Every structure is written in C-alpha cells, then in structure tokens.
Amino acid sequence: MTTFKLIINGKTLKGEITIEAVDAAEAEKIFKQYANDNGIDGEWTYDDATKTFTVTE
C-alpha cells in the first residue's frame, strides 16, 4: 500500500485527506468519490513525485 494525499481547494471546503491505496488509480477513484459526495466539482491535478492529488474549484 502507498500513501496518497488529496488537497482540497474548494469554494466552501478546504483541507487535506490522506489515504492508503494500492496505486494512484485506486486513490483517484476514492478521492473523486469523496469529492462527489461532498459536492466538490473542480479541476484535478496529480503529482506522482509527491503522490498528491489536488482539486480546485
């Protein structure tokens, strides 16, 4: 398992979430479901060097 981080730069929600996932594809699926569940819709980026996803509304 690898640790992945999501940085949320939303209009109403900001913060960071860290999860353990098998790979970046699994982490992205989990993070996008979390964002969808919380009404966050924005532009996604991923930095493989730091294993960090960012979503900006």
Results as ranks from 00 to 15, higher is better:
Met1Phe: 03
Met1Asp: 10
Met1Gly: 15
Thr2Trp: 12
Thr3Asp: 14
Thr3Ile: 13
Thr3Leu: 04
Phe4Ala: 01
Phe4Thr: 01
Lys5His: 13
Lys5Thr: 07
Lys5Val: 07
Lys5Cys: 02
Ile7Thr: 04
Ile7Met: 12
Ile8Val: 13
Ile8Thr: 07
Ile8Lys: 01
Asn9Thr: 14
Asn9Glu: 07
Gly10Phe: 05
Gly10Val: 09
Thr12Ser: 11
Leu13Phe: 12
Leu13His: 10
Lys14Glu: 02
Gly15Asp: 05
Glu16Pro: 08
Ile17His: 09
Ile17Leu: 09
Ile17Gln: 09
Ile17Asp: 03
Ile17Glu: 06
Thr18Tyr: 12
Thr18Ile: 07
Thr18Pro: 04
Ile19Arg: 01
Ile19Asn: 12
Ile19His: 04
Glu20Gly: 04
Glu20Val: 07
Glu20Arg: 01
Glu20Pro: 03
Ala21Ile: 10
Ala21Lys: 08
Ala21Thr: 04
Val22His: 06
Val22Lys: 04
Asp23Arg: 02
Asp23Cys: 02
Asp23Thr: 13
Asp23Trp: 02
Ala24Val: 14
Ala24Gln: 12
Ala24Ile: 10
Ala25Trp: 05
Ala25Asn: 13
Glu26Val: 05
Glu28Ala: 03
Ile30Ser: 06
Ile30Asn: 03
Phe31Thr: 05
Phe31Leu: 11
Tyr34Arg: 11
Ala35Asn: 07
Asn36Thr: 12
Asp37Tyr: 15
Asn38Gln: 13
Asp41Gly: 11
Gly42Trp: 11
Glu43Tyr: 07
Glu43Arg: 14
Trp44Thr: 01
Trp44Ala: 01
Thr45Phe: 09
Asp47Lys: 13
Asp47Phe: 06
Asp47Ala: 11
Asp48Glu: 07
Asp48Ala: 13
Asp48Tyr: 04
Asp48Arg: 01
Ala49Cys: 02
Ala49Pro: 13
Ala49Phe: 11
Thr50Leu: 13
Thr52Trp: 11
Thr52Asn: 10
Thr52Cys: 01
Phe53Gln: 00
Phe53Ser: 01
Phe53Cys: 01
Thr54Leu: 11
Thr54Cys: 01
Thr54Arg: 15
Thr54Ala: 11
Val55Trp: 03
Thr56Tyr: 09
Thr56Asp: 06
Thr56Val: 15
Thr56Asn: 09
Glu57Pro: 10
Glu57Phe: 14
Glu57Asn: 14
Glu57Met: 11
Glu57His: 15
Glu57Ile: 08
